[in-house]
Design a protein around this nucleic acid. Structure first.
Length: 551
RNA sequence: GACUCGUUGGUGAAGUGGUUCAACACGCCGCCCUCUCAAGGCGGUAUUCACGGGUUCGAAACCCGUACGAGUUACCA
């Protein structure tokens, strides 16, 4: 009996060969420099920020080169799979406007290199494994878990490298007859790759981030097909898929670096050319004194849904992630505010290889504030409204009550050279504008009066102001002149400079008077421009708010 | 334990032998700015690049050790 018989026994129904697939999935017609990248998440119901960053890089590299960005669903681990995961993934991609060129979604395949779901590619993997068995580079392994565990324990005890290699790879020495007999007897098995590598020999490999790396050859007979569902392991699926889908650049986390030798050997066994690799530093988080991998269980910000719920503009998240990837991105973006991030010349070499970047929420918040501040009122209206419809009943109701009024509020000190930066996220908007709504204002009674806190004095200031001075029709200069007149009339200092030079000579200043008005109007001592607020509220509502203090 | 990658300020980092006595951004602090806050302006924030040794006229940059951190070491990706 020969390897051929063994291969036939294991895969009797596989008739297509590798050559067939080479024809079905021909080399892509790429122009010089065009890149093919992919986002290949496993459907766990969770889009990790690190994976998403890789997707952003994938997208930028593909799109900026005129190439292809596709989505591949890596669902080979059926035990971890979550039903709606792929919808979430698609939702995230679309939300960030990173529509893949090729994908498979809800039964529809877009692209000529599918299926794009690994569990549907079984035949292709099997054909490849069949080939490997025929040429003697793969074999069935009947070792049981207990045996493997025992073996590893012994290896550890003897300070040997752990794993299935060399003399520990017992099943590689089984004769075809023995293997066939085992299979016919119904023994469960996995398929392992037969490594020809020598761990003591080194080879170099060029990672686009780190440059030339000298690595030990792989000598592990890694599992390429699992026993229960006959699906491939990640390692094997990566090699087969990225070859037949004609991926040119693989972007993945640096946790994959140590499996590179195995992947390279797999490519070599087929005589295929490996793609270029970009192993990105992990995204870490500061936890007390230590930095650790951002974890999906402990850290809500590990999930992309966090940023969607909080209402960060997509542009802000992308900028934060791009800045971690290439720190000159920010500078470039300020210099080219109107350009899309796709026009940025992303350079893998410029990625830090310092083994992990802290994701800085302060920085994100700052970027986000800037992004929101630069939106015009209509854009902010649209984006915050569509966010509210999904995530905030409160904001949604406020907007729907009177969209034009809402627009006026968010337009205060907006659409100018140096706009205000009040809103960090869409979620933070209600907290900044609620006092402009009477029904919310009525419910709140905690006034933050500052220097002037005597109720009689406050009542007097407010009453005098509204009855004697305030007019809706005043322009800003007139308005402020009147505030000054009021200030002087009540014995306070209207000139800030004079006041600062000699504060003891006065009861207080125009700033104190303004603060009283501001607080009475909003309960807060810090708000946007007072004049704008007054105008928006109008005399009648102002009067009502003031009246509380002198009735 | 073994293997691999790394180590520049509070954070992200620029910088690969000599205008870097370490850019830029965030954060923090201070001052200024005819109403607050925000913004803005100005200034401060690493006598030094984990540590020790070496190479060199010259090192954060090159070499060697040490320490520390991270990743991998699965029929998970």
């Amino acid at each position: 009996m020969t390897n051929h018989d063994l291969a036939e026994l294991i895969f009797p129904n596989i008739t297509k060969t590798i050559e067939d697939y080479e024809k079905i999935y021909p080399e892509r017609n790429l122009k010089e420099g065009e890149k093919v990248t992919r986002f290949a998440p496993s459907p766990t119901g969770f889009v990790h920020i690190g994976n998403f960053q890789a997707a952003v890089i994938d997208y930028v590299m593909a799109k900026s080169s005129g190439g292809i960005f596709y989505l591949r669903n890596e669902d080979t681990d059926k035990s971890r799979e979550v039903e709606t995961a792929i919808e979430k993934i698609m939702q995230v991609l679309r939300f960030y406007d990173m529509e893949p060129d090729e994908y498979e979604y809800k039964g529809k395949i877009v692209g000529n290199y599918g299926p794009y779901i690994q569990s549907e590619r079984k035949e292709i993997y099997h054909a490849c494994i069949k080939y490997l068995i025929e040429i003697g580079r793969a074999y069935p392994c009947f070792c049981e878990k207990e045996h493997l565990d025992q073996m590893r324990e012994n290896q550890e005890k003897n300070k040997m490298r752990t794993g299935y290699y060399g003399r520990y790879a017992t099943c590689r020495n089984l004769s075809v007859e023995e293997a066939v007999a085992n299979i016919k007897a119904g023994k469960p098995y996995v398929i392992r790759f037969r490594s020809l590598g020598n761990f003591d020999d080194r080879f170099w490999f060029d990672d686009l981030v780190r440059g030339k790396l000298y690595l030990n050859q792989n000598d592990q007979d890694i599992v390429i097909m699992k026993s229960d569902n006959l699906l491939p392991t990640y390692h094997f699926a990566h090699v087969v898929d990225d070859h037949f889908m004609r991926t040119t650049h693989v972007v993945r986390g640096e946790e994959w670096l140590s499996s590179v030798p195995g992947h390279i050997e797999l490519f070599e066994a087929f005589g295929w050319k490996p793609p270029k690799y970009i192993h990105t530093p992990l995204i870490l988080k500061q936890d007390g004194d230590i930095k650790r991998k951002i974890s999906k269980r402990k850290d809500p910000e590990a999930s992309m849904s966090y940023y969607m719920e909080k209402g960060y503009p997509t542009e802000a998240v992308i900028e934060a992630l791009m800045t971690i990837a290439n720190s000159n991105y920010e500078e470039w973006h300020t210099a080219n505010p109107d350009k899309s991030f796709l026009e940025f010349d992303f350079q893998p070499k410029k990625m830090s290889s310092s083994g992990g970047a802290l994701f800085d929420l302060d920085k994100l918040n700052n970027i986000s504030k800037n992004v929101i501040s630069k939106m015009n009122k209509d854009t902010l209206y649209e984006l915050s409204y569509s966010w509210a419809k999904q995530y905030s009943e409160l904001l949604k109701n406020l907007i729907e009550m009177d969209p034009e009024y809402y627009k006026k509020i968010i337009n205060i000190e907006r659409e100018q050279k140096k706009p205000r930066k009040d809103y960090e996220t869409y979620a933070s908007i209600p907290n900044e504008i609620w006092y402009m709504y009477d029904h919310l204002f009525e419910e709140y009674h905690d006034y933050d009066f500052q220097k002037i806190s005597n109720p009689n004095e406050i009542a007097m200031i407010l009453k005098t102001y509204i009855e004697k001075y305030y007019q809706d029709s005043d322009d800003k200069d007139t308005w402020f002149d009147k505030i000054k007149q009021l200030t002087t009339e009540l014995g306070y200092c209207a000139d800030m400079k004079a006041y600062k030079e000699n504060p003891d000579a006065y009861k207080g200043s125009v700033a104190d008077i303004s603060t009283v008005i501001r607080v009475a109007l909003t309960t807060r001592s810090m708000t946007p421009d007072l004049y704008e607020l007054l105008k928006l509220l109008g005399k009648e509502r102002i009067q009502k708010r003031f009246a509380k203090f002198y009735q």
